[in-house]
Nucleic acid binder design. Structure first.
Lengths: 300, 300
DNA sequence: GGGACTGCTGCATTTCTTGCATCGCTCTGC
DNA sequence: GCAGAGCGATGCAAGAAATGCAGCAGTCCC
């Protein structure tokens, strides 16, 4: 499709920041690319890029256009997917943006289960914090997102939710491990590895601390739950995670988890979401349905 | 835009029912058109049209595609409109689908008021009954619709509503004209011209008659309110209309109107609606805002 | 069973796109 | 202050792609 190609070229120019740079990455001459851009601007009646001495930058019109291009491509992809589907070809591609907590257990299990049924469906799984996951939906970089405590839900549509109480993670022989439920004040007596501020778990803990008199000073702060989970050994350190990101205790791993009393820290919500008003490609819609089911099980 | 042209050609083939026929109406050869169609189908991996002995008919894939084309064109039109708008060009085009009742007074007044402010904005006003007005929104034939008592609102988004009690229309010296409010049982004593079944007014009256013991047998049934309104003279005939479709009584015309008691016939709702999830072109959005304001005034 | 319609295809022509070389410009570094 | 490097834009010729003409095979109607 010739015209769609031109639109993709616009996206490439925007990414590269210059026509020559984009032309190189597209393996065509800058002349051809320049001419296509000029033709498009002519037809549109307004410049798509501002010309700067060292390259180009999207104009206001260009930003409107590029948003249109993204939504257009996503919708065409849906149509292609639906057409492939009615030909009986159970192929497709699903792009998921999700939080770290989903990466070690939940997503691998769900994707492998889905691919057992539909082996020709491929996946893109990208780590996006709760801000960027929503942005990925809006810019059509992702079909669906699994976000813990999203920031603002204005432009996205919630497909399912699952309550997730915050758990404390510790080594198996930690003194706190004897308690079935941990109070926030218990935690304050031990060194703590805290997830950094972009995470929903941290957000819930900060709210809880502001409401109560308990103050937890993190000894270590990290944007990697994997690091935090691996660290505890040496110092009897505690960290936090939601159950969907944790192995079950009876697996006999080096760490165990205990829920924090929900009177201290209320459960957060895990959201399964898509772009508002968008009809998903067949594979993405089916996978989302499966995820929603799995979240019901996880919540119940 | 070359590719969009091809997509429009698909729409033309669908309308014409044959490639040769569409080619003629498009002023190109059937060869070129046929080749474009074949190329598109190649790229899509599925036939868009079923080949019949006497022409072509949309396949299932084609129906998916043509829906995509319509929404894509509408969205591009919005982008163009927004770009034109930020260039300061207050031009644009608005396509309205509305019921008969809006045509004689409301729409002319509103459009002329709008064009007084924005003379370069052009309008398409099409008469569509409440079924077809909703379909026009879905197929992107219309930007906004003004519908009295729409059938199903699933796929459209309501921008404003205005309650419209049903009025009886009669000649100025009709015996019923002495009453400020008319009961349904009063109506049954006179000959009645009834709007046909596709109209919201008729729908409300049918419901009212089913609920009460009053039965009105129409002497004349018509799908033209204009005809019904012009008829009353000779036979003291009554007919029905909603206030927004009526001149004010003090204009001294040949007919007067009286509201039906809302205990007999509850007021219907006039809906201003657009396609769900769609961002309207600038001119259409502004005009819709004006209409919503006017409906508030009409209702209050 | 002929005529009229359909979609489809080989070949020559036209139209459009592409690539090369080059211009004018702005910013950078010496 | 001046040369160099980077940028986007443009004239001209070669190449690619879409178009039009003529003609094919098929189905339907009378």
């Amino acid at each position: 499709m010739r015209h769609l190609e031109t639109l993709d070229f616009i996206v490439a120019i925007n990414r590269a920041g210059s026509i020559r740079g984009a032309a190189e990455s597209l393996a065509i001459t800058s002349t051809a690319l320049n001419r296509r851009l000029l033709a498009l601007e002519e037809e549109l009646g307004a410049p798509v890029f501002e010309r700067l001495p060292r390259g180009v930058r999207l104009s206001t019109a260009g930003e409107l256009l590029i948003q249109h291009i993204r939504s257009q491509r996503a919708d065409l992809e849906r149509v292609r997917s639906q057409i492939a589907d009615l030909k009986g070809e159970r192929r497709g591609h699903v792009r998921v943006a999700c939080s770290q907590a989903l990466l070690p257990y939940f997503m691998p299990r769900e994707i492998s289960a889905y691919r057992a049924e539909h082996p020709r469906v491929t996946f893109d799984v990208n780590l996006r914090d709760r801000y960027r996951a929503e942005r990925a939906l809006i810019s059509h970089e992702a079909d669906i997102a699994l976000v813990f405590e999203p920031v603002r839900l204005a432009d996205v549509q919630v497909l399912a939710t699952a309550p997730q109480p915050v758990h404390v993670v510790m080594v198996r022989d930690h003194p706190l491990a004897v308690k079935p439920v941990v109070r926030l004040s218990d935690v304050a007596e031990f060194p703590v590895g805290m997830p950094s501020e972009e995470f929903g778990v941290r957000y819930l803990l900060d709210i809880a601390m502001r409401r109560s008199s308990v103050s937890i000073v993190p000894d270590i702060e990290s944007d990697s739950f994997e690091f935090l989970r691996c660290y505890p050994g040496p110092e009897l350190m505690l960290t936090f995670q939601i159950p969907i990101g944790l192995p079950s205790d009876d697996e006999g791993g080096p760490v165990v988890t205990r829920p924090i009393d929900t009177r201290d820290v209320p459960p957060g919500l895990l959201y399964l979401a898509q772009m508002r008003g968008r009809t998903l490609p067949v594979a993405a819609a089916n996978f989302a349905r499966q995820l929603a089911g799995a979240m019901d099980v996880a919540a119940g």
